[in-house]
Simulated scan of single mutants.
Amino acid sequence: MATFATSDQLLVVIDPVARHTDGESVRIAKDVLSAGAATKVCLPEGPEEFARALARRGSRRPVVVGDDRALLRAVSVLHRQRELAECALSVVPVGGVMSLARSLGVPAGPVAAARAVLDGAERRLDLLVDESDGVVLGALRIPPLFPREERDGPGGSPARTAPAGATALADGAGRPWLRTCQSLVRTLVTRPPRTTAVAGPPGPSRLRVEVDGVTVVDLDQPVEAVSVAPGEPGIAEVEVRPLSVGAEASPLLAEGRTVTVSGTDFRYRADALVSGPVRSRTWTVREGAWGLTLPVRG
């Protein structure tokens, strides 16, 4: 890993979401960074200004102050600019969702993260890149069509709820003296509006999953979910969960450099974003494609 001197010039790009959600942590991070290095602070108001700030960084080392979405945006911008290979990125996690940054080894808390920016070292990490130039830093998952509890009612049948007043009306069937009451009830009872059952996360029912050109599961086997996660350097680990009937089915495991999923329209969650629907997507592992400044290992 390459180490850095504290005299490096830093370009500190502060995401607007971080400024609005936790201004105190932003201030602390900025103070620690400014005390340890020459800094230029940018306060972009949107994605376009964010991208321009990175494009105009010159020789300064970029530091993103923001959540997982801000980190992903920075890597995406540098990837599109074809400058990831020459750029060591740093991040101080501030904001709502920060699980990705922490899973990559970035310290929690603005002081510890800012100190890692100043005293840490660049670690090269793998990147998943799809055919549309989208990037994935951590793991991605294709969820089930909808959760079991929403898909099935008692005994595996679709769950249904009777409208309000339906039971009372049924009890009056065959009793002529209640017909007047039934008519009155129909008039007074407000029937609930027709609603479409709320499905869970959209996803596949039948997919073909190929790893390095070898079919792991084909369209004749419904699947519950597919996940792709980083493995050994240059390798992605793939897990396919077939749709279980009765006893839970064992997951199908594979690993390789290229993963292709195709079939029915599906959405997928990659890092902090949900994308799709798409009919086909191929992800390729690029080994050591980007650098992140992390604490020096003891």
Rank of each mutant, 00 (worst) to 15 (best):
G246A: 03
P93Q: 05
E86G: 03
P147N: 15
L11Y: 10
A225T: 03
P143E: 08
A53R: 00
E131W: 09
D133K: 05
A199W: 09
V261M: 04
R186S: 12
V135N: 13
P44I: 07
Q81E: 11
L89C: 02
G165E: 00
A173V: 10
P47Y: 09
D265Y: 06
E150V: 15
S250V: 13
L33Y: 08
R279V: 02
L104V: 07
S7Q: 14
D171K: 08
R80A: 05
E86R: 09
R102E: 11
T196Y: 01
R123M: 05
A112S: 11
D130G: 11
A18P: 11
S99A: 12
T3C: 10
L10D: 09
T187Q: 13
R208H: 08
G172P: 00
G46H: 14
A112C: 02
L118Q: 13
A289L: 01
E48P: 10
E24R: 14
R186M: 10
R80M: 04
P230W: 00
G246W: 07
L188S: 10
Y268F: 15
D152Y: 10
V92C: 02
P204W: 09
V26N: 12
R73Q: 15
R175P: 02
W290N: 03
H20R: 14
L243Y: 03
G23V: 02
T258R: 14
T161H: 09
L100M: 03
R186K: 14
V75Y: 07
G138R: 00
V214Y: 07
W283T: 10
A229V: 04
V65N: 00
L10T: 12
L137Y: 06
A272N: 13
E287C: 04
D126S: 01
V12P: 08
E24M: 06
R52N: 13
R179A: 13
A116S: 15
A114V: 10
L33R: 12
